[in-house]
Design a protein around this nucleic acid. Structure first.
Lengths: 217, 217
DNA sequence: GCGAAGCTCGGGAAATTTTCCCAACGAAGC
DNA sequence: GCTTCGTTGGGAAAATTTCCCGAGCTTCGC
C-alpha cells in the first residue's frame, strides 16, 4: 500500500558487493523513472530495508554469504504479500530458479544479460507481471521436457544411493563394501548414472548431487 | 608504449557479465579522467582488445568460464611486459591472489570493496605501482603467518588452474584445448594434483576446490 | 496365472584412463 | 655453474570405463 505515488519506480538493491551495487544503481538511475531508495548487502538488512522503505521492486542477488537470498524473499513476502522481488543472479540452474519462484520471487534475470533486459524485467515486475530472462526460460523449458520433475526421478533407489556416495567422495571399493556389492556392480551403476543424467565427468555428478540436495557442500 | 597521452587513464574492462561491465563503466567514467576504451567477456577477446587498444590499465575479473583470466593475464604480459592488469574478483583466497600476481597482475581488489577502493587502485596501478585492497592484504598476511597455509599452497599456478577447471566439470579434452596443452599433460596434472592433495577421487577434488574458494556451487 | 516391464546384480571385452617413472627445458636461487 | 622447481609430455603396465548381455526378482495389468 505505501508504494511511492510520487511517480516512477522505487527500488531496493540487494547484493553483497558494494561496487556491483554502485554500478547497478547508476545503470538503473540512468533510466529517468527509477529511484534506488535503499541498498542492502545481506538477507537481514534487506528485510529491514524493505520494512522501512516499502519499495516497488526489490532487485536481489540470491548468492550471498550467510542466510541466502531465498530466506530474505520468504521473509519479505511473508509480511507483505504484494511485495515484488526480482532475482538477479549469476546462476541459472533450474533448481535455483524454481526455489526462487517458490519462495515468492516475481522474476528472475541472470547477470549474463544486457542491462536492457534487467530494466525491462523491472518494469514488468513493477506492473505486477512475472518476468524471466530468455536464458532462464530456456533452462526451465529444457528441464520441464524431462517427464520427471527432477533429474533424480529417472534414477532408481540404488542409483541414487550410489550417486550420493560418489558425490560424497567415496571410492568404488568403499561403496561396494558399504552396500555389499561387487565393485563391478558399483562401476556399472556409476556408468549408468552418468549416461542417464547426461553428465560427462564425476565433477559434474557432484554438482548435480548438490543441486538436487543429495549431499551438501 | 602507446599509453594515451591525451590525458586521463584508458581502461579495458574484462568481465563475463554485461550488466556488471556496464555498471563498472558508469562508476569509472564518473571519474572525470577515466576512459573505458574497450570491454571483453572472455580471455581470448581480452587479449585481442588489449592488442588493438593498448589501454593503460586492464581491470579484469578472473573467474570466467573457459580459459580463466589467469591465462589472459599471462598472454597479455607475454606480449607486452609493461601491461598493467588489475584483478577485480569476488574471491580472496591466498592461493588465487598469489597465482594472479604470479601471472603478472599489478593489483588485486575484491568486489566486496567500496568503489573508491577500486578507483584508488586503478590510479596506483596506472602509476606503475602495485595495489591490493585491505581484505586481500589481510588474507595474504594471515596466510604468511601460518606455516601450514591452505592445501592450495602446495600447488603451482598451472595445477590450481587445472584443478579449478576439473572441479567446474570440464573434461580432460576441454581443459587441454582451453589451456593449449596435450591431454597427456592434463592427465599428468590431474594425477599430480590428487597425489599432492591426498584426494582419492574426483569428487573429493571438487569438494576441496569448493572449500578453497576456487569454484562455487 | 502369465507375460511385460523394471529394477538389481554381475560377467565379458575392448577402449580409455590412471598411475607412476622418466626426460627435457627454462627460470629462479645459491 | 649448479641445483631446484615448475611445466610439458612420452611410455607402459595396471586399473577403470564403457557398452552389451543375461539372470533373478518384483510389480503391474490383463
Amino acid at each position: 500500500m505505501p508504494a511511492s505515488q510520487t511517480s516512477g519506480i522505487s527500488i531496493l538493491l540487494v547484493d553483497d558487493h558494494p561496487v556491483v551495487r554502485q554500478g547497478y544503481r547508476r545503470v538503473l538511475e540512468h533510466q529517468g523513472d527509477f529511484r534506488v531508495v535503499a541498498e542492502a548487502d545481506n538477507a537481514a538488512d534487506a528485510y529491514r530495508a524493505y520494512k522501512s522503505h516499502a519499495p516497488d521492486v526489490v532487485v536481489m542477488d540470491i548468492s550471498m554469504p550467510g542466510a541466502s537470498g531465498l530466506e530474505a524473499i520468504r521473509n519479505i513476502r511473508q509480511r507483505s504479500a504484494g511485495a515484488r522481488v526480482l532475482v538477479f543472479s549469476m546462476h541459472s540452474e533450474a533448481a535455483l530458479v524454481k526455489a526462487a519462484f517458490g519462495a515468492g520471487a516475481s522474476g528472475y534475470v541472470t547477470k549474463s544479460n544486457e542491462p536492457t533486459v534487467l530494466i525491462a524485467a523491472i518494469r514488468s515486475v513493477a506492473r505486477g507481471e512475472h518476468a524471466m530472462s530468455d536464458d532462464v526460460a530456456h533452462v526451465l523449458a529444457m528441464e520441464s521436457l524431462t517427464p520427471s520433475g527432477s533429474v533424480l526421478d529417472q534414477l532408481g533407489e540404488r542409483e541414487i544411493e550410489i550417486l550420493r556416495q560418489l558425490a560424497a567422495g567415496s571410492t568404488t571399493e568403499q561403496i561396494a563394501v558399504n552396500l555389499n556389492l561387487s565393485m563391478k556392480t558399483v562401476q556399472n551403476y556409476h556408468y549408468l548414472i552418468k549416461t542417464k543424467t547426461g553428465m560427462r565427468t564425476d565433477a559434474q555428478l557432484v554438482r548435480l548431487a548438490v543441486e538436487c540436495g543429495l549431499t551438501s557442500l
